[in-house]
Design a binder for these strands. Structure first.
Length: 953
RNA sequence: GCCGGAGUGGCGGAAUUGGCAGACGCGCCGGACUCAAAAUCCGGUGGGGCUCACCCCCCGUGUGGGUUCGACUCCCACCUCCGGCACCA
């Protein structure tokens, strides 16, 4: 360096300035938010993290930086911003850790939280840390329990489509007549939180049951362990009651269409009809039909009736057999003595089959004839009733009418067991359909067409037929219009320690056996704290660890009766269902949130998080919110107005080649993967070795990468999900150490659109760090012995050109932030710096405006420069720069001139030139004239401000 | 199979009420500074062609068609990749 005092030279040093400003913000409570908004409010929320032992992942700061930019920007625009952070801290990993290492979950959880908090603060996010919460705080889960009690105290009124207090549930007379116990039972059957003996997804390896949402292909989503179906008493939440509103009210929110589609898909609403099939003799059938004419369609079918749900009532005449699920309650009654043995065996088989087996065997359908017949209500024909596990008890009525001619599954089953196929829909000229084969029953046709073989309905279109027959069936009391949902009720209990205890007591009799009666723990006694236990291990039986709690916790004496506490705990999703409300009033000891505060801040204006929560968290939270809304505890029907999903960040791009055992290269197009995802040779099946290739050794030919030395060997070039096993995980601590927090923030925003999946690149980080260095040198004289402004920085008025660049930058950056198009906003700022680096003098005023523009993205650097420019206070509440249109507009425009669509020249015209002037200028341009010469000008298209196209012949 | 999303230089990406394809950054090449290196600064960089004398020409946004004066953008058919669902009657 040659200069003695080089250490004192004011270089850009994030290691020093970042902690400095973090300390400043903390000391000055810069981002403290008032109880009630002052002026216009803006609630910007991140999906709070699960504090894992690994610490922050580079995926976290992506969304967090985006929201932080919005928060800082809005503050400078004068909005009152709510921007909190907390931790979703209940969950399996802490408990697994407790089991293997013997560390109590409380301890490891709070240690992990401390680490997360440190990392988040290191990145300079402008959270109001005084609102921090963790779902594991007794002061928080007290209110999670309280909301559970609200759910317990609520029934859904289908008339009003609304949750109401259980006390308002109308009790039918016949129930009333059976006494108070029956009434209580009737109430319990209608609560949104209820107990059921449910077939649950029991995972022996995890020692808990799982929600349907947590099971993928018969294995647990976490860990990939096998899952079995066993019956167990469980707490359920009646989310299906809200299915309709959860779907319909998606219209109220500004979410990506893709996420809405995902939720609609999950809810899976379908319309069709319920139809009753009589089981008995022809004579009885006639009487039954007549009776039904009078009574209409009953709420529950009589025992001699099989009720089915179908979306295609128009194919009723094509029903050639029926199928009921193995768990169907009528199965016993329908099974004839001759068939009993077979049916029993089949039922046992189906019951012990795990979901995994059921999926594996999906290719081959199985079933057994019950021996009974049902009578088709529309034509009086008798058809056999089968039992098969391709029909699910949990959907519709657990029974179907099978129409093999017009349903793929029924067709497959009919082929398997040689059941008749009768076509009742003529596909006519439907594209790509073999009409002859359909009519002959050789293939299934599932599309719409025209009715045949359907008696009086022949000739109707599918659409028309559906409507007519549904009406006709309803009039005769044989069927009714019906809606079904794929969505199931939410299995809400877990056999784990590290979750919220249920505020529920089970009454015991004199022998200490449960009577079946449950009572809620009174609100004043909340929270029900987790007890101290020494052994967290699941027992291997579906019996919760809380069974091992000390008796003084487990047993409660009340009004002379003994009660045992509920020992299941709530699933991890519980805490995240309402945290956005608690942030508004985190210290409130009287209520879960003060209504005044709630009304002032809700709804969340912007919610950012990963798409992996598209169905689970977002559906559950919306459900709870709607219940709270119906019960008058919150003021908005939906919690999250605008939702943005940040994309995944992948590891660095890797180029991979493949070699066989002898070390010979194998072209990537000859490589397949086996069951365990290992590479094998497509033809020989031989196992191959994946080799990481240095980019220097590869080159691109056409659209593929090949080995430079052997161009016939194709390589694979792609980025993979970050994972410990692949060793491509990027640690934010290291990035901050090496490049600084501002560089990390800026890079994550510069990588590409927020929503896109994008690969990490350390070179990219150093690129934006380079930009920050240039910003520093734009303002600071780094060769001076101490901190001082660059000599070119002067208190002068900007010239015309500088004003233009400045104002265009302000406009572009502002509009890009509004669109959350952060990558392009950063590109605009880079252009500004490229331009102003060459300016001498550099007007201080212009630089100040620029520093303000930069501040939401790189807040530490911006604060430091703001101070160097002579300001004493933080820039966090400085007014956002405004642009003036007169500097943004151009006086003259350079327009390209095309001849027959190809650019052949360019002209310069005044910005306000009219079409005729532009046309003349274009035609008189030398180059254009050369192309036009000797040809006929057919048309001249002038697009103001864009281009001119001369069409010649 | 069904539902979403995406295919643009060596790489990340920019540009759509249809109007100059490749902004900005990385990488690479060349130059300046230096004894040298790092850092920094300047210039170049889609492919091909040309007497490549810096001018000009042709091709080019996954593939094939179409609409249009004009298509990365709209329409039809298809291919590939990513995400989700998957016996839901």
């Amino acid at each position: 360096m040659g200069q003695g005092a080089s250490g004192a030279m004011p270089r850009y040093n994030p290691q020093v300035i970042e902690p400095k400003w973090q300390r400043y913000w903390e000391e000055h409570q810069t981002f403290r938010t008032p109880r009630l908004p002052e002026g216009q409010k803006y609630y910007v929320l991140d999906m709070f993290p699960y504090p894992s032992g690994e610490g922050l992942h580079v995926g976290h700061p992506e969304g967090y930086t985006a929201t932080d930019i919005m928060a800082r920007y809005k503050r400078m625009r004068g909005w009152c911003v709510m921007h909190p952070m907390g931790f979703d801290a209940f969950g399996l990993p802490a408990e697994e850790h407790a089991i293997t290492k013997g560390v109590p979950p409380q301890e490891s959880t709070y240690r992990n939280i401390a680490n997360f908090r440190r990392q988040l603060k290191m990145l300079g996010f402008s959270y109001d840390w005084s609102r921090e919460l963790a779902t594991t705080d007794p002061d928080y889960y007290r209110w999670t329990q309280w909301i559970f009690l609200v759910l317990f105290d609520t029934w859904f009124d289908p008339q009003q489509q609304k949750g109401r207090p259980i006390a308002e549930l109308p009790i039918p007379e016949e129930v009333q007549a059976q006494g108070p116990e029956a009434v209580e039972q009737y109430r319990d059957e209608h609560r949104l939180a209820y107990q059921a003996e449910a077939l649950v997804n029991w995972c022996p390896a995890l020692g808990t049951v799982l929600a349907n949402e947590e099971v993928k292909d018969g294995r647990s989503e976490r860990g990939g362990h096998p899952v079995q179906r066993i019956p167990l008493r469980q707490w359920m939440l009646r989310i299906t009651a809200y299915a309709d509103r959860l779907e319909r009210e998606l219209d109220l929110v500004d979410w990506p269409e893709g996420i809405k589609a995902l939720q609609r898909n999950w809810i899976g609403r379908s319309e069709g009809a319920e139809v009753d099939f009589f089981i008995g003799s022809q004579e009885e059938f006639q009487q039954w039909r007549q009776r039904r004419q009078q009574t209409g369609f009953p709420r529950k079918p009589e025992p001699n009736v099989l009720r089915v749900y179908t979306t295609r009532p128009d194919t009723l005449f094509g029903a050639t057999y029926m199928v009921i699920a193995p768990e169907h309650p009528l199965l016993d009654q329908l099974t004839t003595p001759e068939q009993r043995e077979q049916v029993e065996q089949y039922r046992r088989q189906a019951a012990t089959k795990s979901d995994l087996d059921r999926t594996d065997l999906a290719k081959q359908k199985t079933g057994v004839f019950t021996g009974s017949y049902a009578i088709n209500p529309v034509n009086g024909r008798e058809i056999p009733i089968w039992v098969a596990d391709y029909v699910l008890m949990s959907y519709g009525t657990g029974a179907i009418m099978a129409v093999p001619a017009h349903d793929e599954r029924d067709f497959e089953f009919a082929q398997q067991y040689h059941l008749p196929v009768v076509a009742v829909v003529d596909p006519e000229q439907a594209e790509g359909v073999d009409r002859e084969a359909v009519l002959a029953g050789r293939v299934a046709f599932t599309g719409p067409g025209r009715a045949i073989n359907s008696g009086p309905y022949n000739g109707l279109t599918t659409e028309e037929f559906k409507r007519r027959i549904t009406e006709d069936l309803a009039r005769q009391g044989l069927g009714r219009f019906a809606v079904n949902y794929r969505l199931r009720d939410w299995l809400f209990s877990r056999q784990r320690f590290w979750g919220e205890p249920f505020p529920i007591l089970h009454e015991l009799d004199d022998q200490g056996r449960p009577t079946g009666r449950v009572v809620p723990v009174p609100e004043e006694e909340l929270p029900v704290l987790l007890p101290q236990i020494d052994d967290y291990k699941p027992i291997g039986r579906p019996e919760p660890p809380l069974e091992k709690a000390p008796p003084e916790w487990l047993y409660v004496q009340r009004d002379g009766k003994r009660y045992k506490r509920e020992t299941n705990t709530m699933p991890q999703w519980a805490g995240s269902c309402w945290y956005y409300l608690r942030f508004l009033d985190p210290k409130n000891q009287q209520r879960f949130v003060d209504p005044e505060v709630e009304r002032a801040w809700m709804p969340v204006d912007l919610y950012v998080g990963g798409a992996e929560h598209a169905v689970l968290h977002l559906l559950y939270a919306r459900f709870w919110h709607k219940v709270l809304y119906d019960r008058g505890y919150v003021s908005t029907p939906e919690p999250f107005m605008k939702l943005v999903n940040q994309g995944m960040i992948l590891g660095e791009v890797e180029i991979t080649g493949y070699q066989d055992a002898e070390g010979r290269w194998v072209s990537a197009d000859l490589v397949a993967s086996d069951d365990e995802d290992r590479p094998v040779h497509k033809q020989t099946g031989q196992e191959l070795r994946a080799v990481k290739i240095d980019p220097q050794q590869a080159e691109k030919r056409q659209n593929r990468f090949v080995l430079k030395e052997h161009p016939e060997i194709r390589l694979e070039s792609r980025a993979y999900k970050m994972s410990k096993s692949r060793g491509n995980v990027v640690n934010p601590d290291h990035v901050v150490q090496q490049f600084g927090a501002d560089a990390l923030r800026l890079y994550e925003m510069f990588m590409g659109p927020l929503e896109a999946t994008k690969p990490w690149s350390m070179d990219g980080v150093s690129g934006v760090r380079n930009f920050l260095d240039r910003v520093w040198r734009l303002v600071i004289d780094q060769h001076a012995p101490q901190m001082q402004l660059h000599p070119a920085v002067a208190d002068v008025e900007p010239n015309e050109e500088q004003l233009r660049v400045l104002h265009r930058t302000i406009k572009a950056v502002t509009e890009d932030i509004e669109k959350m198009s952060f990558n392009t906003a950063i590109a605009r700022m880079m252009e500004f710096v490229n331009f102003f680096t060459h300016q001498d003098p550099r007007p201080k005023r212009a630089l100040e405006q620029f520093v303000l523009l930069l501040s939401p993205f790189a807040p530490h650097l911006a604060e430091e420069l703001w101070q160097a420019l002579g300001h004493e206070q933080s820039l966090a509440y400085e007014p956002w720069p405004e642009w003036e249109e007169k500097y943004v507009k151009q006086e003259t425009l350079e327009l390209p001139v095309q001849v027959n669509g190809k650019v052949r020249g360019r002209i310069t015209v005044p910005a306000d030139a009219d079409q005729e002037q532009i046309k003349q200028a274009a035609l008189s341009d030398e180059k254009v004239a050369a192309y036009v010469q000797g040809k006929q000008v057919a048309r001249v298209i002038v697009v103001p401000g864009r281009l001119v196209n001369v069409v010649v012949r």
